[in-house]
């Protein structure tokens, strides 16, 4: 039984072009040049209760536009969508009680106050009754391990601590679906992993449906079973994350900072992308050699100050999907 149904959803923006100079301004006044941007071009999909779905794509692909339509803050140009049996943009406020939304770069916490104050306020806003709120807070404090800084002003929290509070805050009213727009943006590797674990736990313990967008393939790999890849407003892949990984994420990059000069690495499936001084960037083809093997050999051979393993950028995955002859895009 799907709880999100989207069919042929499309959004076109018209923007007025600004021209330089006085003459340009005058011309714009009388004969404005309007530019059409098709942010989302008729996408269709369904999401079942309890699923963990990732919506991935590069910046400007249409991810945020889609998520905004699903939470009701943007009207589509055409097409239909239903979330929990409601049309989001028509029943936005009623839907609000049943969904939670976290926008990675828009904080809902009051900056100068401790998170506890925002929690209390949100409880009033969502009409959570006080005894229920206490119970819920205890659960969330335990799950997100935020007990220590619930009374610390938000401005004094680290980005990771803040994000944990941010997500906990949007769960106070027990939403059935949690929308997360770039929840790990700007976080370091360890904190990213922590947030991913929490989201996973949340889904497994409470059965909350997770719908997240990201431009980091890492989020998807760990967190979601199903991924939709969106590019230029179209869904170009919709399927299992394991399949996506097997077919399209073939390489990882390893960035090293060494304590000694670089003397090269010879082995199949590894080539040097960049090298300057004691810094090296390698690309590892994981279909030829497992990443663990390469890292192990590097650690054995070099004195390593810092090491980072990254997924290839979204653009590269997308290029590969387009280039792939085997599996045609599954978009509706």
């Amino acid at each position: 039984m799907p709880i999100i149904t989207v069919s042929e959803l499309a959004k076109t923006f018209w923007s007025r072009e600004k021209q330089r100079g006085l003459r340009g301004s005058l011309r714009a006044l009388f004969r404005p040049i309007r530019r059409k941007t098709e942010a989302v071009k008729g996408i269709s999909f369904t999401v079942d209760a309890g699923e963990r779905v990732a919506f991935i794509g590069p910046n400007g692909a249409g991810k945020s536009t889609t998520i905004k339509m699903l939470v009701g803050i943007l009207h589509p140009t055409s097409g239909q969508a239903e979330v929990l049996g409601k049309i989001p943009w028509k029943e936005r406020q009623r839907l609000a009680y049943e969904i939670g939304a976290v926008f990675g770069q828009k904080s809902q916490l009051w900056y100068h106050l401790p998170p506890a104050d925002t929690f209390d306020l949100l409880a009033r806003i969502y009409e959570v009754d006080p005894s229920e709120q206490r119970q819920r807070m205890d659960d969330l404090i335990e799950l997100f391990e935020i007990g220590d800084y619930l009374q610390v002003p938000v401005r004094k929290l680290s980005l990771g601590e803040r994000m944990r509070c941010e997500i906990a805050a949007s769960l106070l009213h027990r939403p059935r679906i949690l929308f997360l727009d770039e929840p790990t943006i700007g976080l370091d590797v360890v904190v990213k992993q922590r947030i991913r674990d929490l989201i996973l736990e949340l889904n497994q313990q409470e059965g909350v449906t997770i719908f997240l967008t990201s431009h980091d393939a890492g989020d998807v790999e760990v967190l979601c079973k199903r991924a939709m890849v969106i590019n230029n407003g179209e869904v170009i892949y919709d399927g299992r994350v394991s399949t996506l990984k097997r077919d399209y994420i073939h390489s990882k990059t390893v960035s090293l900072k060494l304590g000694q000069p670089w003397q090269g690495y010879d082995g199949p499936g590894v080539h040097t992308l960049k090298q300057r001084g004691y810094g090296v960037k390698l690309q590892v083809d994981t279909t030829i050699v497992p990443i663990e093997v390469v890292v192990g050999q590097l650690l054995a051979r070099y004195e390593i100050v810092d090491i980072n393993v990254d997924n290839p950028p979204m653009e590269e995955i997308i290029a590969r999907i387009y280039a792939s002859p085997r599996e045609p895009p599954q978009a509706g």
Binding site: K68, I73, R92, A101, I125
Partner: peptide, 11 residues
């Protein structure tokens, strides 16, 4: 462009 996000609240 932050005002739109407040629309998701029952407020």
């Amino acid at each position: 462009g932050d005002v739109a996000y407040t629309l998701t609240r029952p407020l």
